[in-house]
Amino acid sequence: QLNEKPLPEGWEMRFTVDGIPYFVDHNRRTTTYIDPRTGKSALDNGPQIAYVRD
Rank of each mutant, 00 (worst) to 15 (best):
Y51P: 15
R37I: 06
N3C: 06
T31N: 05
E9C: 04
G10D: 04
L2C: 04
A50E: 15
H26Q: 12
Y33H: 05
F23C: 00
N45D: 15
Q1H: 09
R28G: 12
T30H: 07
G39C: 10
I20P: 04
F23H: 00
Y51L: 13
Y33D: 03
E12Q: 08
G19L: 06
V52T: 15
Y51A: 14
T38K: 11
N45G: 14
V24I: 15
Y33A: 03
Y51Q: 15
Y51S: 14
N3H: 08
Y22P: 00
R37H: 02
L43N: 14
D44I: 08
P6G: 14
D18C: 12
D35H: 03
Q1K: 15
Y22H: 07
P36T: 00
W11V: 08
M13F: 13
V17M: 13
E9Y: 10
F23L: 01
E4D: 13
V24W: 06
R37V: 06
V17H: 14
I49E: 15
A50C: 07
P36S: 00
T16C: 06
G10L: 03
Q48D: 15
Y33Q: 04
T32R: 00
D25S: 05
E4K: 10
E4Y: 07
T16A: 09
D18E: 10
R53G: 14
S41T: 14
G46D: 13
N3W: 03
D35Q: 01
W11A: 02
T32S: 05
F15L: 13
I20A: 13
H26N: 05
W11H: 03
S41E: 12
G39M: 09
L7A: 02
K5S: 12
G39F: 05
T31M: 03
P21V: 10
F15W: 10
Y22D: 00
T16F: 02
E9F: 07
P21A: 12
V24T: 08
R29W: 09
F23M: 01
K5L: 08
N45S: 14
Y51I: 13
W11S: 02
V24F: 05
P6R: 11
V17P: 12
F23Y: 10
G39N: 11
T31V: 06
G19F: 07
N3Q: 06
R37E: 02
P36V: 01
K5N: 09
D44G: 10
E4L: 10
F15M: 09
K5T: 11
D54L: 00
Y22G: 00
G46W: 05
S41K: 14
V52F: 10
G19M: 11
D25E: 02
V52D: 14
T32Y: 00
R53E: 08
V52S: 14
E12D: 12
A42Q: 12
I20W: 04
G19P: 00
R14D: 06
G39T: 11
P36E: 00
N3M: 05
A50M: 08
V17A: 13
S41W: 12
D18Y: 03
D44L: 09
P6N: 15
V24S: 03
L7Y: 03
Q48M: 04
V24D: 01
L2G: 08
Y33T: 04
R37L: 06
E9S: 11
E9P: 12
D44Q: 10
D18S: 10
P36M: 01
V17N: 14
